[in-house]
Amino acid sequence: MTVPSQELIGTVTAESGIDGTAMLDETRVPSRGRIIMRRFVKQKSAVFGLVLLVILVFMAYVGIHFTKWGYAQPDYNSFAVTPNGSHWFGTDAAGGDLYAMTMRGAQKSILIGLLVAVLATGLAAIVGASAGYFGKWVDGVLMWIVSLLLIIPGFLIIAILSPHFHNNLPLFVFFLGMFIWQITARIVRGQTLSLREREYVLAAKYMGVSGGRIIVRHILPNLASLLFIDATVNVSTAVLTETGLSFFGFGVQPPDISLGTLIQAAQTSATTQPWLFLFPAGFLVLLLLAVNLIGQGLRDAFDPSTGIAV
């Protein structure tokens, strides 16, 4: 055991730290955020996922302008042609350029997928943790709302309301998100109930840390694995639900396109004109892959037991 030196004690009892500030900046104490970032960057697969997502977003938003074809401008000279120099991904039976359509669809799907996931998981985390941590009437009210939303058939509600969306994407995202967060919220609440009793939460409480801060600082990080997995699953759920809705004539409506509607349309010709199916489906797979890798990377970065050396 090191015996604390007398000088050290002196600085503690005296108003300390001020004299030591000069040497501090070189050797700052790394914060949790920084450590997590470093741990994230250390993982090849996570970085690969992030790069892939950036490329996909770039393709969808910037890459769409590389071709002279618009997603809603059919080329009446080439119907259902295979990929070539002019139509990079080929065209469909109506002469629509598949490259432009895929990119436009990707824009929608990326937006819907990521926004819904963040919204749903975020809401689940906040509501579940608040209900579990504060208990009493907060718990009662929040869980009552959750149970209520659980029994409302979300798919039908969206189907009924969708004529009023008028391709209003934020509203659509909001409704999609509203119907997939409840189960996670219940799980988060259950976990919070046990975390709340942990001594480190008590310790924080006796330090005078407020409830909200305890949730953000102690409870949610300890649920990070669950939340990241939930968020990645929610991305695919959102994209698939949107596809389903679009298939029934709700959700994203023509002339607008999403990856879901494209894949839906190409289903019948998947064997005869495979490119119609392969490109949008491939894009979707890459998108989900990227999101999964990032989610996994974040999870491992948050979890100190994964043994990533920093």
């Binding site: 104490v29 790394p30 914060s31 949790r32 450590i35 942990r198 001594e199 480190y200 008590l202 310790a203 924080a204 330090m207 005078g208 840390v209 600082r217 102690h218 990080p221 300890n222 990070a224 948050f302 979890d303 100190p304 037991s305």
Partner: peptide
């Protein structure tokens, strides 16, 4: 084992109060 948040680096544990 129980009184230190497993997801919080020691620096942050000490910084919290």
């Amino acid at each position: 084992q129980a009184s230190l948040d497993p997801r919080l680096p020691v620096g942050d544990v000490l910084a919290e109060p």
